[in-house]
Design a protein around this nucleic acid. Structure first.
Lengths: 340, 340
DNA sequence: TTGTAAGCGTTATCAG
DNA sequence: CTGATAACGCTTACAA
């Protein structure tokens, strides 16, 4: 195909009758160039359509103004939304983004972080609490600390301690505690907790749920804490036959599972919220799509992303006193599947 | 921060007592290296954790095995799904992906294509028919042809003619024609057509709709072809007051709008599908979330992505006879909002 | 204000 | 099979 030898800095230098150093200065907006030469060079650049070779730039340079974004799966609604916000914020600040989808296994995550690191990015953003690991494996965030030795690492929705690691998470513990408490106060005491993950965030939610139960003097029934897939039909089928305990309400860590519960109630002829109260999580489009419309926790993804990007920009400006952890409060959006 | 001078090919050469040329050969799996030296070098590489500098590699090299993906918005369900499939396919074939979100305006699109081109990518994939332009502006795909002079360009869900341009689209014209015809045959003749786009694909859908009407001898009423936003509440409100024509069915070019129509019917007490038949497009999660569940056109996004990636891989292998356009048939997934 | 020249870390072309 | 060495295109002291 068109192996048209790309035009380079020497061509521009020749065209405008200056040295390549001067061309470089013009390209990099170095102030110490006379308006006159600048104009000449600019003209040559414009009419030739010259753009600097990023690899040559990258070779000697410290910064490529590129941020690496790592996400387990971009098909996930929550993550694709987050990436959209991040991309937007960073692009406005003059940064380019490069996205990798890592999958969920530890080895995949490590591989992709390394891939990203190899591209001389200025920082890494890890989207999703899966990167913050699960409760029983205490050492499995070491790969993050290792990466943080090279560039600042930002984590969306997970908290990991370490030098050069910055975390922003929504307060899932509190939100979960509040929802569970509200459910209890509205007269429920057999609350089915559905989750599809053992991530940091999922664990926080579970803790909030348990604490609320404990505080209300209700024993935690293991049979009411169910691990499943985030799929409407799967959850529907599960509730129809595989749950060996009575329940009067459902609290799911993602809207998809909550909608599965709605479908279950509908097929059983249960009244919502009277016979079954249901609360979802993420406040996604599914909430206003379902019937009845789903009450759900808004985990403020947009704000979390904004905070992350703001701090990233601060850090790359070498600002001081940038907090290493910040927590954003969630809010419950009440719709038709709850009576509070 | 840790400005630890990165370890380079010279370090490895020194450590293993060979020249940098030999190290390079080992790194690139060049067969003409003795097993013995190879082993020595590998050991040095492994214990030092050396990875080649991509910029230095990129400088002299023709291929970086990186594909640029351009998408108007990654928050869109259809697009994020497509990107997930593409990423997956290409990663399996040993390619890295770099994602840019361009937005929908012509100037943004051009800028981002240029940005991508600057990164020595091996090919560009344009996701979404917005890149294929609208019906009345015949010249606005020139920027694609310009890009195609540098690298092969692949378009998902849009057809653009030109050297080095490869397109894969779902057959939206046919699908739309078929749905409209089915609606007519089930006794409907006032079919409201809702769309939120003037992209290539949206135009194909509109053509199919009109043709089916014409073939059935039903006049096309402009009042029944409504341009709106792809938002459930917006469409609901629109149908409640801003449509100045009777309609007995709704065909929307995206599921979101179709769900808006469901919500409208529910609030009006209309029976679905008896009083109002509704068909959506994209067969997204919304279809099985809504109540009643939504009949929708499955536009085979996964297949379209697979085809695109397969051909991309062929092209980059310099294979001959790679078709420049291919069309994938859609299928209607019948659920509860239609009686056929 | 401008030019010269020394890297930056690879790959590739020659010799050996 | 292995080693020098010349590109690759740019940035940046240092000189002028």
């Amino acid at each position: 195909m068109s192996d048209n030898k790309m035009i380079n800095i020497y061509d521009i230098a020749k065209m405008s009758g200056v040295s390549i150093a001067t061309v470089s200065r013009v390209v990099n907006n170095n102030p110490k160039v006379s308006e006159k030469t600048k104009a000449k060079v600019m003209e040559a650049i414009e009419k030739s359509g010259y753009t600097p070779n990023v690899f040559a730039q990258g070779l000697g340079l410290k910064s490529m103004r590129t941020i690496g974004i790592l996400v387990p799966s971009i098909a996930d609604l929550y993550m694709s939304n987050a990436v959209a916000h991040i991309e937007d914020n960073l692009h406005d600040a003059g940064y380019d983004c490069i996205l990798h989808c890592s999958g969920y296994t530890a080895s995949e995550k490590e591989t992709h972080i390394q891939l990203l690191l190899n591209k001389k990015i200025d920082a890494i953003i890890l989207v999703g609490s899966t990167y913050a690991g699960s409760e029983d494996e205490t050492h499995n965030t070491d790969y993050i600390r290792r990466a943080a030795k090279e560039v600042p690492v930002f984590i969306i929705n997970g908290l990991v301690d370490g030098e050069n690691i910055y975390c922003t998470a929504s307060n899932d513990y509190q939100a979960s505690y509040d929802v569970t408490t509200a459910l209890i106060e509205s007269g429920r005491n057999k609350i089915l907790f559905l989750t599809d993950s053992r991530s940091y965030s999922a664990n926080q939610k579970k803790k909030g749920y348990k604490q609320a139960l404990t505080n209300a003097g209700i024993p935690c029934d293991e049979k009411l804490m169910v691990f499943t897939e985030n799929s409407i039909p799967t959850v529907k089928a599960l509730l129809e036959k595989d749950v060996n305990a009575e329940f009067d309400s459902v609290f799911a860590t993602d809207d998809g599972m909550a909608v599965g519960a709605i479908k279950y109630a509908l097929s059983k002829g249960l009244k919502i919220p009277e016979d079954l109260s249901i609360v979802g999580y993420n406040n996604s489009t599914l909430c206003i799509c379902s019937e009845p419309e789903l009450s759900s926790v808004d985990n403020k993804i947009e704000k979390v992303c904004k905070d992350t990007c703001d701090r990233l920009i601060q850090i790359l400006k070498n600002a001081d006193n940038v907090p290493s952890q910040s927590v954003v409060a969630c809010s419950l959006v009440k719709r038709a599947t709850t009576n509070f």
